[in-house]
């Protein structure tokens, strides 16, 4: 916690370079165009919420940010660097798998379906990437993992396998797993949508705590309460385009666009 605070305070470039910058991002699956030109900017240190009806492309956009999906047109930058490509002169070169993997180290992702590794305990899940990818010493990785599990309130479940944990606990382990790589950006893909209602609160508490520590977060969510309280910016997407964006409190309480109004009237 404290460590996270100092970490986010340290970089001085905060405001100059946006953490995520999208310029006319297009993405098609076969003949279906899912993203039809997305322009947006996520500032360093802010909590950026993406809302919209299902099928609007918000999850797809999130997955483009760490190159789990390839974009078809436009430009997407993370921390000032192109995602998935390298530009030399006016030519684009596709990055090798290894280079893509290298960039993903700095971007944590939390999935709707948790995707914990079922054959590993909670602790093993958390230390897997630091040890395997970063080559961290096992003892140190374990110590750090225990701190992270403590932070998400699950230190006593370190030895449990995912199948022995509730959905909410699994998701909190997944958050700890992503944090173990010390990312500069965290992506949340509907982190509470697969949870029983009474378990949602625990996960949101962890995310709130993370936001307060200054982590840059892009959150696809249906939790309007969370967006309003914690979010710094909010974008409403529909049918592959950004319909409305701004301060969450303004957009949620006083939506300007008709489609935003009709969506919010159904959700709130």
């Amino acid at each position: 916690m404290t460590e996270q605070l100092t970490k986010s305070d340290a970089p001085a470039k905060d405001t100059s370079v946006p953490m995520v910058k999208a310029e006319g991002v297009h993405k098609s699956f076969g003949a279906v165009e899912v993203l039809k030109g997305i322009d947006l900017e996520v500032k360093s240190g802010e909590v950026f919420c993406l809302i919209g009806p299902s099928g609007s492309g918000k999850s797809t956009f999130l997955r483009c940010i760490n190159h789990l999906e390839k974009i078809n047109a436009g430009r997407l930058y993370v921390d000032g660097e192109l995602v998935g490509y390298r530009q030399q002169g006016d030519k684009l070169y596709e990055l090798r798998d290894r280079e893509v993997a290298m960039k993903r180290r700095d971007i944590g992702m939390v999935f709707q379906r948790f995707n914990l590794f079922p054959h590993m305990t909670a602790l093993e899940n958390v230390i897997e990437a630091p040890v395997q990818v970063k080559g961290a010493a096992k003892a140190q990785a374990k110590e750090r993992a225990m701190q992270l599990l403590e932070r998400v309130g699950l230190a006593d479940r370190a030895g449990h396998y995912p199948s022995q944990l509730s959905g909410g606990q699994q998701q909190r382990v997944a958050i700890a797993r992503a944090l173990a790589m010390d990312p500069k950006l965290m992506l949340f893909d509907e982190p509470t949508s697969a949870l029983d209602p009474e378990l949602v609160g625990d996960v949101l508490d962890v995310m709130r705590d993370l936001a307060e520590s200054g982590m840059t977060m892009v959150v696809v969510t249906h939790e309007m309460g969370f967006a309003r309280e914690v979010g710094d910016s909010l974008v409403f997407m529909d049918d592959g385009v950004v319909v409305e964006s701004g301060n969450p409190r303004d957009v949620l309480t006083n939506p300007q666009h008709e489609r935003t109004q009709s969506f919010l009237s159904k959700v709130l």
Binding site: N66, A101, N115, F117, A129, V133, M181
Partner: peptide
């Protein structure tokens, strides 16, 4: 499950 591969890739694993 495909999600397993995605999770591993998202963590920067080759």
């Amino acid at each position: 499950d495909e999600g397993q591969t995605e999770a591993a890739h998202a963590l920067g694993m080759s």
